[in-house]
């Protein structure tokens, strides 16, 4: 039963059981608050991993109606922090998100006047050791957003993103730069030129053996099996 719906007398009884001081002078609201405080404390003591063994008394004081008492949570749309993050997805895809704060925007564009200047997101790749840097994609963007990059050239490369202010007169000023990411590769390396090793016929065979002559990476069954892991859900319909 929710405490709000209990009589003051009943609440007083509970307060007496908990030995809450000053209970006789409390209003109904104060009683509820004092009881909840003490129940929370009981539970805290009890819930600590490896702590002393508690009793189940505190648990049963929680409502068991199965209804979520929490209101719907809305998270902020922006945080007012200059951000540009690039995350790898697979050998051909990456994801960027960014936020340029109003203050920063004003600094670069002057009074947030976007008619004289555009925000442009660009992606760059290079080989190992910063060799052969190349801009592979760019797009005008708003001050906050997400972008999915799909480009096979990023395979095995070093990839990063930059957010620049582009002015009408052709001038460009960098505002934000992401961290550089080593992108995954989807093939066996041709790099055999190293003092650690010598590729010979057997090595070829071992590579073939490792991949079983099939190009199967990751297990397709992975999702399938994980779903079944949680049996509380009847996944029978989707998983056959």
């Amino acid at each position: 039963m929710e405490k709000q719906n209990m009589t003051k007398k009943k609440l007083y009884e509970i307060a007496r059981k908990h030995n809450i001081p000053g209970r006789s002078k409390m209003s109904k609201k104060e009683l509820i608050s004092a009881i909840e405080d003490i129940e929370t404390v009981n539970l805290t003591e009890k819930s600590v991993a490896g702590g002393d063994k508690g009793t189940s008394a505190a648990i049963t004081n929680f409502p068991s109606d199965g209804i979520n008492p929490e209101p719907e949570i809305t998270l902020p749309e922006k945080y007012n922090v200059d951000t540009l993050v690039l995350l790898p997805i697979n050998p051909a895809n990456a994801f960027a998100f960014w936020e340029v704060t109003a203050t920063t925007l004003a600094k670069y564009t002057g009074e947030r006047d976007l008619s004289k200047c555009k925000l442009v997101l660009s992606f760059f790749i290079s080989g190992e050791n910063n060799s052969q840097m190349e801009r592979i994609a760019f797009s005008p963007v708003y001050d906050i957003g997400n972008y999915y990059l799909n480009d096979s050239r990023i395979n095995d490369s070093i990839l990063w993103a930059e957010l620049d202010a582009f002015y009408n007169d052709g001038k460009r000023i960098n505002i934000l730069t992401s961290a550089k990411i080593k992108m995954p590769s989807d093939k066996i390396s041709t790099d055999t030129d190293t003092e650690f090793m010598q590729i010979n016929e057997n090595s070829e065979k071992l590579l073939e053996y490792s991949i079983a002559g099939e190009k199967i990476i990751g297990s397709g069954e992975f999702i399938h099996r994980k779903m079944k892991m949680f049996s509380s859900y009847n996944t029978a319909k989707g998983a056959q």
Binding site: S189, M197, L206, L207, Y209, S210, I211, I217
Partner: peptide, 18 residues
């Protein structure tokens, strides 16, 4: 790692994944 963590490493893994 999964198979391709080592299989696609650089330089080539001398022993495959074994």
């Amino acid at each position: 790692t999964d198979t391709h963590g080592i299989l696609y490493s650089k330089p080539r893994p001398k022993y495959g994944v074994y």
